[in-house]
Amino acid sequence: MTGLHPTGWQGRRAQCRRGVSLMPRISLGNRRPGVVVRKVRGPEPVRTIHAAVRKTSLPQPALRGLLDALREAAAQ
Rank of each mutant, 00 (worst) to 15 (best):
A73M: 11
V53F: 11
L28Y: 09
E44A: 15
S21M: 05
G11P: 00
G11T: 02
R18C: 12
L28H: 04
W9M: 04
Q76G: 14
M23T: 09
G42E: 14
P24G: 08
R71H: 13
R64L: 12
A73C: 11
L58G: 01
R31I: 08
V53Y: 12
R13F: 07
Q15H: 08
L67I: 11
V46E: 15
G29N: 06
R18P: 02
G11E: 04
K55M: 10
R71K: 14
K39F: 04
R13D: 02
P6L: 05
S21R: 03
Q10W: 05
A69K: 10
D68L: 13
A14K: 03
H5M: 00
A62C: 03
R64M: 04
L63S: 03
R13I: 12
G65M: 06
G19S: 06
V20Y: 11
S27Q: 08
P6H: 01
K55D: 12
T56L: 10
E44H: 11
G8N: 06
L58H: 09
A62M: 07
Q15C: 04
P59L: 10
R47M: 14
P61D: 06
G11V: 05
R64N: 06
N30T: 07
L58V: 15
A14Q: 09
L70W: 01
S27C: 13
A14T: 07
T48C: 09
P43W: 00
G11F: 06
P59Y: 08
A75L: 12
P43F: 05
R13N: 07
K39P: 01
A74V: 13
D68K: 14
R41V: 14
W9S: 00
A73T: 10
S57E: 11
P45K: 05
R41H: 12
A62K: 06
G29V: 03
